Simulated assay, not measured.
Amino acid sequence: MTKLRLGSIADDKPVRLTVELPAAVYRDLVEYGRILARESGQAEIAPAKLIAPMLARFMEADRGFRKQRRKASADVRASPDPV
């Protein structure tokens, strides 16, 4: 059994976003959805359902992004309130 980076896909209220993908990326998403569905016992997963969890996983794993986000949050908390 293959260990994929994504687990089951949460059913969350979506925000509509239109993107253009290279055909090869789309084909890979279709195949990833088939494999993930087979591994998790879910029905076939549409490519659009994979993009958000993949991006979230990517951002969680990006140390530079996490560091900058923490820094930005600290800067906002440290700034004085306007009078």
Rank of each mutant, 00 (worst) to 15 (best):
G41V: 01
D11T: 09
T18Y: 05
D11L: 11
V25L: 11
V15R: 14
A72Y: 05
R38F: 07
R70E: 13
V30M: 03
A56S: 03
L50K: 01
R70D: 15
Y26T: 03
E31A: 12
D28M: 09
R57K: 15
V19C: 07
A56M: 02
P47H: 07
A24T: 11
V83I: 04
P22R: 15
V15Q: 15
L6F: 04
K71P: 00
R63A: 14
R63S: 12
A46R: 14
E60W: 03
E60K: 09
V83W: 08
A46T: 05
Y26N: 11
K49P: 00
Y26P: 00
E60I: 00
I45A: 11
S40C: 06
D75V: 09
R27I: 02
P80S: 15
R38N: 11
F58E: 13
V19N: 10
A61W: 02
P82T: 10
L36S: 06
E31I: 04
L6K: 10
R70Y: 08
I51A: 07
P80L: 11
L17M: 05
D11S: 13
L29N: 10
R34V: 03
P82S: 13
E39F: 00
G41P: 02
P82Y: 14
P47M: 04
F58D: 11
A37R: 04
E20K: 12
A72T: 05
D12Y: 09
G64L: 07
A37D: 02
E20D: 10
P47Q: 02
D12L: 09
A37P: 03
A24W: 06
S40W: 00
A10W: 11
P22L: 13
P14V: 03
I9Y: 13
R69Q: 09
A23I: 02
Q68R: 14
K13I: 06
G41I: 05
R77F: 12
A48L: 02
R63Y: 04
A43R: 12
E39W: 00
A78C: 06
P82N: 15
A72C: 01
I51R: 06
E31D: 10
K3D: 15
Y32G: 08
K71I: 00
D11F: 01
D28V: 03
A43M: 09
M59A: 11
A23D: 11
A43T: 08
K71G: 03
S8V: 10
V83S: 11
R57A: 12
A46D: 12
I51H: 05
K13F: 01
A46G: 10
T18L: 08
L4W: 00
L55K: 03
A24P: 00
T2D: 13
T2G: 05
L4G: 01
A43D: 13
E20Y: 08
L36Q: 04
P14I: 03
T2K: 14
A72H: 06
I9T: 13
Q42T: 09
A46M: 05
D11C: 04
V30L: 07
R5I: 02
R57M: 07
R27H: 12
A56G: 07
L50A: 01
V83C: 05
S40Y: 00
R16Y: 14
D11K: 15
K71T: 08
R63C: 07
A72S: 09
K71S: 09
D81S: 08
D11H: 10
V30E: 15
P80F: 04
V30D: 09
L21T: 02
R27P: 00
R5S: 06
K49N: 11
V83L: 10
V83E: 15
R70F: 04
F58I: 00
Q68M: 11
P22H: 12
K49E: 14
Q68V: 03
